[in-house]
């Protein structure tokens, strides 16, 4: 296991690459999901105001 984490001495380069890819790709789906939630909430409020 520690051999695996060590990556033959290249641990920093390998794991940083994978880590950055993970973070960037995660943000790439979380952000649009949050925006979508906000959009629907905003539209609902608008409609409720319009009905009154």
């Amino acid at each position: 296991m520690s051999d695996f984490l060590h990556m033959g001495g290249y641990a920093f380069y390998v794991w940083t690459s994978y880590g950055i890819a993970f973070v960037v790709m995660l943000i790439g789906v979380i952000k649009p999901l949050l925006v979508h939630k906000q959009q629907l909430r905003g539209l609902k409020l608008k409609r409720q105001r319009g009905q009154r």
């Binding site: 790709m25 790439g28 789906v29 649009p32 925006v35 979508h36 539209l43 409609r47």
Partner: peptide
């Protein structure tokens, strides 16, 4: 992953552009 991220973003852009449309009102 691209397909997933693309669909998510397309939905948002669609909602943005079609704010006043009837179909969106029905979904809400």
């Amino acid at each position: 992953y691209y397909a997933i991220a693309l669909l998510l973003r397309c939905r948002n852009e669609l909602v943005q552009r079609e704010q006043g449309s009837r179909w969106l009102g029905e979904i809400l």
